[in-house]
Design a protein around this nucleic acid. Structure first.
Lengths: 219, 219
DNA sequence: TACTCCCCTAGTCTTTCGCATAGGTGCTTT
DNA sequence: AAAGCACCTATGCGAAAGACTAGGGGAGTA
């Protein structure tokens, strides 16, 4: 997987003295990932299953080198959990771990101070590499999540740019008129796109279309 | 984690000759899970990252003992992918692997012939146990997913039974009239519930309410 | 050039949604 | 007994959504 890195400091790509905290409510992911990292030589891996637990452990067990924070977890509420974790000084660096988060999350996370974004679609080996990369003071983001990548979604590929924008409005529960204002268009035009969307997505109405989009992981 | 098992046959809890195929588009889950299973003594673990790939591998590499099928994966389309996998005879038993699927998926999966439902919230060790349990011809379902567990959701608790039913209709993109027919009520009554729902969920309209429900993992 | 596709706008029409007000039942709590 | 809640129904009305037809402009391709 191609990556982009920004140099942040001049730390050495260290040996095995990294202290890592994994916070994920999916025990399956948490445990197997920890086992994999340990097998790859990382001895000091700690676990948490909620944001609060991660904060507590960070408080008790001192600062970690790296915190891997699941995007979908009790208490996270989008990226507000990231801010909390950073402010609390749980770890020197915090990275977001995500299954199928909305496309813009990666950038937002970096902007809010995260040092990495790790989609769960990456391979385990890539992840180990990324972890070491980040521990060396770099910022890791897979290029596929750098730009506004709605495109890579198979469902989104059959939609035009405008249609995707309108669909985004639908998913936020906006009325046609509101979407029109936001896009500087006439309301009739939005109606047109909504109709086309419903046809393409095989939806019976706007609500159905929004649900289908949500189900597919868009927005 | 408490479980419920139904005896299906009288196979021995076997040694290590199990052939397992894992199909998950999350490389992280796939790889680490495979590594964990191998570490637990399962030597013959194969991998696929799409439904189609799983079907192809099943075709080429003969029937497996167990297929672990991710619920959210390209080609799955809900549980239709399960049916395909079963019909194709990819494995003697097929189990659904799911992150945070709607509550009724577990039962539906079992009804459609799956021999297990594995939420990703379970621990890795529980999963290994479950895998062996299923390989012995049993059906594995965590009790937390047996009943119609919408109740445990914090969001659903503030909703009455009717409201939840109506919300379910909304999430399927149904019109008020359709929901009314389904519940044997008048359309006006549905409107009433929709209005109450929007207030309780702090939604601006039906679409928004449906999205909030979906976001919360309901339905 | 002609063809196709995406995009935007316009007008008309029917249906649906959303809000308000008002009244009824039944069950439970106080 | 009274109060409260969940539930169902009824009328009415304005706003929004959805379906249809009918354009025009621009970009790209055969």
């Amino acid at each position: 997987m191609e990556t982009v890195g920004f140099n942040r400091s001049h730390l050495r790509i260290s040996g095995l003295e990294m202290r890592i905290l994994i916070a994920d409510d999916h025990g399956l992911v948490r445990d197997t990932l920890a086992a994999y990292l340990k097998n790859a030589g990382e001895k000091d891996v700690h676990l948490a299953s909620t944001l609060q637990e991660a904060l507590d452990i960070g408080q008790a067990e001192g600062p970690f080198d790296l915190l891997l924070l699941d995007y979908n977890m009790p208490g996270m509420l989008g990226l507000t959990g990231l801010e909390q974790a950073i402010d609390a000084g749980v770890a020197k660096g915090v990275a977001i771990l995500s299954g199928n988060a909305p496309p813009n999350v990666a950038q937002d996370a970096i902007e809010q101070g995260a040092i990495g974004y790790l989609p769960k679609t990456m391979t385990a080996q890539s992840l180990v590499n990324a972890v070491r990369f980040m521990a060396a003071g770099e910022t890791y983001v897979p290029v596929s999540h750098l730009a506004g990548q709605v495109d890579d979604n198979p469902l989104a590929q059959q939609l035009s740019r405008r249609e995707a924008e309108v669909l985004n409005g639908l998913c936020r529960g906006l009325a046609n008129k509101e979407i029109a204002r936001e896009l500087n268009l006439q309301e009739v035009t939005i109606k047109l796109h909504v109709r086309t969307l419903c046809r393409k997505l095989d939806a019976k109405n706007r609500t159905h279309a929004a649900m289908i989009a949500k189900e597919a992981g868009l927005f």
